[in-house]
């Protein structure tokens, strides 16, 4: 029996049914080096995404095309290790940011909040294309947009502080999702009607896995626009606001 045969499973044909790491062969009882390194590379992508930074200069310059003011906001978590261990700090804006927000208080329909979350890579790669798709829809519907807030070390709930401070009727948070081994560039979107401090996840609607190989950007934009119109119509968001476009799948 040649060594090569140990490394090839005879059930390779099953691979077409799943993306799970099946039929990867063995050397002795162990995973062959090729698959072992492939796994390490996927984990490296995920780790690098967790520690990636928002490309603030580039994003600020690209955001100018939307003709909206941009506010650069920070959470109370001052570095990544602290952010990872203290989610409570990532949910609150720091003192300097609070002053910036107060100075921009107005009367808005929607505030768009962009936060690094657990993958700044996801934001660096997907956010501008997404806004280019969704902002024209808001403008066509005569929705009043607040300054765009670009947040470092932010969690989802930081949109509550921001929405309340700016006096926006609804917040749309775009945030990097926790990287998996298969994708490190997933962006999530959270919609919160009447944002204020102390809300929990059941008062938000979430659209997940926004990336070219996941939920494509234009489809995500349409879905989110639909949900936001429903939220304004029903004056609520969260578990009581169903995405009717999906309901036909659950008769």
């Amino acid at each position: 029996m040649s060594d090569d045969l140990y490394k090839q499973n005879l059930w390779d044909k099953l691979k077409k049914f799943t993306s799970a790491r099946i039929a990867i062969g063995r050397t002795g009882s162990s995973i062959p080096v090729h698959n072992s390194l492939e796994f390490k590379l996927a984990h490296a992508h995920a780790r690098d995404a967790v520690y990636s930074r928002l490309d603030v200069d580039k994003l600020n310059s690209e955001l100018t095309r939307f003709n909206l003011p941009v506010l650069n906001i920070s959470s109370r978590a001052s570095y990544r290790e602290q952010y990872l261990q203290r989610p409570d700090l990532g949910r609150r804006t720091d003192d300097v940011s609070n002053e910036i927000l107060q100075a921009n208080k107005g009367k808005y329909d929607i505030v768009i909040v962009i936060a690094d979350g657990l993958s700044a890579t996801a934001i660096n790669q997907n956010m501008i294309d997404f806004l280019a798709s969704v902002i024209p829809m808001f403008k066509a519907a005569k929705m009043q947009l607040a300054p765009i807030c670009l947040v470092e070390q932010g969690r989802v709930a930081i949109g509550d502080d921001i929405g309340a401070a700016l006096n926006a009727r609804l917040s749309l948070i775009l945030i990097g999702e926790r990287p998996g081994l298969s994708a490190a560039d997933s962006m999530g979107a959270y919609i919160t009607f009447s944002p204020k401090q102390g809300l929990t996840d059941d008062s938000r609607n979430c659209v997940s896995n926004i990336r070219p190989q996941g939920l494509p950007i234009h489809m995500a934009a349409e879905k989110i626009f639909y949900l936001i119109r429903q939220a304004f119509r029903k004056q609520l968001s969260g578990v009581q606001l169903k995405d009717d476009s999906d309901e036909r799948y659950f008769p």
């Binding site: 799943t18 790491r21 990867i24 162990s30 995973i31 796994f39 998996g180 298969s182």
Partner: peptide, 22 residues
């Protein structure tokens, strides 16, 4: 025991079939 330690639904890493053999 998870194929190649990679749970493609729950998105976390655990132990593989090979790990148990080890």
């Amino acid at each position: 025991g998870i194929p190649g330690s990679d749970d493609i639904m729950l998105n976390y890493q655990s132990t593989s079939f090979h790990d148990a053999l080890y």
